[in-house]
Design a protein around this nucleic acid. Sequence first.
DNA 1: CAGTAAGTTTACGTTAACGTAAACGTTAAT
DNA 2: ATTAACGTTTACGTTAACGTAAACTTACTG
Lengths: 128, 128
Amino acid sequence: MSDATTYTISQLAKEFEITTRAIRFYEDQGLLHPTREGQKRIYLSKDRVFLKLILRGKRLGFSLAESRGLIELYNPIGNNRVQLKTMVDKITNKQKTLDQQLHDIQIMKNDLKKAEQRCRLAMDKFDT
Amino acid sequence: MSDATTYTISQLAKEFEITTRAIRFYEDQGLLHPTREGQKRIYLSKDRVFLKLILRGKRLGFSLAESRGLIELYNPIGNNRVQLKTMVDKITNKQKTLDQQLHDIQIMKNDLKKAEQRCRLAMDKFDT
DNA sequence: CAGTAAGTTTACGTTAACGTAAACGTTAAT
DNA sequence: ATTAACGTTTACGTTAACGTAAACTTACTG
């Protein structure tokens, strides 16, 4: 499970088509925690997973703060009852927004389908 | 089809739980086109539909520019072949990003489910 | 040993999407 | 007549998420 593969900052930048600036910024915001080899940042596969999560979050319109919240759910889990309860609440909330998004997407897909049909009908008339 | 219901800016603001400032801003950006009664803005049901669309877009992380693009799909459709082709392309692109978002949501929902299970397991151990 | 390729820090600039405040005009009620 | 509730325009302020640039180090490469 503990993948020992490491990555440089430019490797990750290339793979995910983002800038190194962005990656360093995510670190500033506490989303990534690369180790150092001298001055240089070394990223573990864990960081790569988190990066994926960040970008997935961005595609869904999440802020970096929200993605940081999601990343924290990957941690070895809080110690006491209260922390666990808080965690479950956070999870439940996220699940609700995801379900809302699912619903929104269905509506939009329907609207787009209708719009597409209108276009195709109008185009057909040109071809007569 | 032509609903004659009209709305004041504060009615819409209250209904959708946004500020009047935001609504005026959307007009500035060319997303809404209320008529005027003297100085005051009067919104038709069409505007209300567009407002819904804007907020739905926001929940999915769309920019106002993107939502404006979506609104334009509701128009009486472009005149010539080229415009129609452009329109269909835009629609196809949006459909792709929506499908990508659907995929992203499935993954996230799965991750959240696992995280929730870990939490519940940890909580069960407290109750023994 | 000069060059260049990849890394670093520091810092100011930029865009989107409003928030906030000032200063003012209607209309209705007290 | 004044206060309240709602509306208007104009304009500066704010936050997030980087972009861009400068100035520098480290490592290899011809």
